[in-house]
Amino acid sequence: MAETVVKRTGYTNETAKAFLVDAGAVYKNLKYDQASKKWKGELLGATEDGNKVKIEVKTRDIKIDGTFSMYKGQKQIESTNAELEVKVKELTHSNIALAILGKARAAEATEAPDNYQVIEGTSKLTNDQYLTNIGLVGTVTGSSEPVVIILDNALCVSGLEVDFKDNSEAVATLKFQAHADEDQVADRKLPCRIYYPQLT
């Protein structure tokens, strides 16, 4: 932001362009398609009451004899964590399988009718249960392009808790965590990115 003479409010003519508004939409395996110049992914489903992104950076202080206050360069990054919390209202068999770290399969003729899926938990987590990524696509008021937040190698770590009530629809809160791949571990890189458009 340009240097200005001080005033008693943070509001400027540019302020209204930088509001992040509405809940956005959540996509699995989101990527930018250069040919069409569009973002593409698999929609997770309808949500209720918004979505929440949390990026944590934990630091530690390096102690040195003779220093009596905090000093520049003292803090080192100890760990990072990125999470996306989604309140899913569209409860499909694939969303339920994501929540319980399980798998869905077609029911066998001896256990249920033909048009049923069976969703079962597993005793061992495998790499194919991680999503390539999960992304939140949101709106910023000063651009026709979306804000896109991507968590790499996402895994649902919340389990499944659903209330069934009369005159209401069930909503499941799913929490996804980002996980670093081999290159990101080597580079000590946060497995999360925010793509923020230029504001007009």
Rank of each mutant, 00 (worst) to 15 (best):
K175Q: 09
G138F: 01
D181L: 05
S143G: 09
E3P: 08
A107G: 11
G142M: 10
K103Q: 10
D22S: 08
T4M: 10
N115K: 06
E111P: 01
A99H: 11
I64L: 08
F68N: 12
E108V: 05
K63V: 09
A186E: 15
E78Y: 13
K38H: 08
N167G: 03
F176E: 02
Q117F: 15
E161S: 14
E182C: 00
K28A: 10
A172R: 02
Y116H: 03
T59I: 13
K89T: 06
K58D: 10
A2H: 06
L98R: 06
S94Y: 04
V5W: 06
T80D: 02
I149M: 02
T126P: 04
V53E: 14
V162F: 02
K7Q: 01
K7P: 00
A107R: 11
G135W: 00
T92E: 01
S36V: 01
L43Y: 05
A180N: 05
E145L: 11
L98Y: 03
G66D: 15
L131R: 11
A99Y: 12
Q177P: 01
N115A: 09
D128A: 11
I194H: 07
A186F: 10
S144H: 07
T126A: 14
V6M: 05
D181I: 03
V171W: 05
T110Q: 15
D61K: 12
N51G: 07
E14R: 06
N153E: 04
M70C: 03
T9H: 08
V157H: 02
E14A: 06
F164Y: 09
Y71K: 09
K124S: 14
Q74V: 14
R105C: 05
G102A: 03
G66V: 11
K31T: 15
D49I: 04
E3K: 09
V148Y: 07
R188S: 06
T12R: 07
E161G: 09
W39C: 14
A186G: 13
P197Q: 02
V6F: 02
E182I: 04
T200E: 07
N95R: 12
